[in-house]
Design a protein around this nucleic acid. Structure first.
Length: 332
DNA sequence: CCATCTAAATGTGGGTCTGG
DNA sequence: CCAGACCCACATTTAGATGG
């Protein structure tokens, strides 16, 4: 391995001068710069980023703990976050959290010594929250919230669930159902809560409305869908807690020869890019901002790192995006 | 006194040497 | 055999040394 020391020896200068040539060349005599640059070329020297991190006491790494990419929401946010972080001259370490691998990921994340952490995979009650606060590592959650109610950027989940259900009910659907994820995630908890609220406003007993709380992988959603098909009174509309679930439902419907929205209305939440695709055109609920939630969160994280703000608590309002997977119920 | 350069300190984790 | 001292990898930064 060629180090700056070797370059210094080859160029006949001190190691310090090599460093200055690379970092502050305006402070070095042009002739010396030339000498050092030639030595760098001769020896194929490449600065060691790990050594740099050591002395600078920062790694230049932002760790992202994303949800799995089979959920298109995380495709959108990961893209936005990685692009933003790179544009700011930082590097990104990406981990994909699922419902059951979180704690092994946490260990690896802490050992990496990132300058800051942005994550969407944290439970409503999670010790990692306190660990990060104790360590003083800047961090932010997007699309998730911890019970301590700090360091998050989220959408108004209750409003989102409400708008989704309200849209379906306003279209005249009497029989609807809910398919969502586990409630130790704030997102699912909030969205279902909003869903229930809309039912109440339409004078429907929440208990009478079927609700499936499943893991968000393909197999479990399919199981929930099968259960749904066995119901005595088959719903005409399905409210999914996320676009990812909704798109999976669309697929399951098509596989079985059902038509959407003729046989089933389907609505999601998140307004992911994929939902806008004309071959899908999913009716959904999403933030009013042009940027996605990942972008909004990483922007905020940099504010925290630059000490412009200390604590982020941001809830984005949402609106309905009506598309082709919902329509008026013809039975009324 | 300024332009230009350098010695030494710095961080972490792991290896080696020392003395008891 | 073990605790503790000390050294190493490396690039950057600080404070200070040269030369003119």
């Amino acid at each position: 391995m060629v180090s700056s020391k070797d370059v210094a020896k080859h160029a006949g200068v001190s190691q310090t001068t090599v460093s200055r040539v690379l970092n502050t060349p305006e402070l070095v005599k042009p002739k010396t710069v030339e000498k050092v640059m030639k030595a760098i070329e001769d020896l194929n020297y490449i600065p060691n980023d790990i050594a740099r991190s050591l002395v600078q006491k920062k790694t230049g790494i932002i760790t992202l703990i994303s949800g799995p990419l089979h959920n298109p929401f995380f495709v959108d946010t990961t893209t936005a976050i990685v692009n933003y972080v790179n544009a700011r001259g930082y590097k990104v370490n990406v981990y994909f959290g699922t419902e059951d691998n979180l704690h092994s990921i946490y260990n690896a994340v802490l050992e990496t010594k990132a300058d800051a952490i942005i994550l969407s995979s944290m439970l409503y009650q999670d010790d990692l929250f306190f660990t990060l606060e104790k360590l003083g590592i800047p961090f932010i959650m997007f699309n998730r919230k911890h019970q301590e109610n700090r360091h998050f950027v989220e959408i108004d989940n209750v409003q989102a669930g409400y708008l989704a259900a309200n849209h379906i009910l306003s279209l005249g659907h009497q029989s609807l159902c809910w398919i969502g994820g586990p409630h130790q995630m704030s997102t699912f908890f909030g969205r279902y809560h909003g869903f229930e609220k809309a039912l109440k406003d339409h004078e429907i007993e929440a208990k009478s409305v079927p609700a499936f709380f499943t893991n968000t992988n393909k197999e479990d959603i399919e199981k929930a869908f099968e259960e749904l098909l066995k119901l005595d009174r088959r719903p005409t509309a399905i409210c999914a807690a996320t676009d990812a679930i909704a798109i999976e439902i669309l697929n399951l419907c098509l596989e079985r020869g059902f038509q959407v929205p003729r046989d089933f209305n389907v609505i999601g939440i998140d307004n992911v890019e994929l939902s806008k695709h004309h071959s899908i055109a999913l009716t959904t609920v999403g933030i009013t901002s042009e940027e996605n939630l990942g972008f909004l969160a990483i922007e905020k994280l940099f504010e925290v790192m630059e000490k412009k703000s200390t604590c982020i608590q941001q809830t984005e309002s949402v609106k309905l995006f009506p598309r082709n997977t919902t329509c008026k119920n013809e039975l009324i």
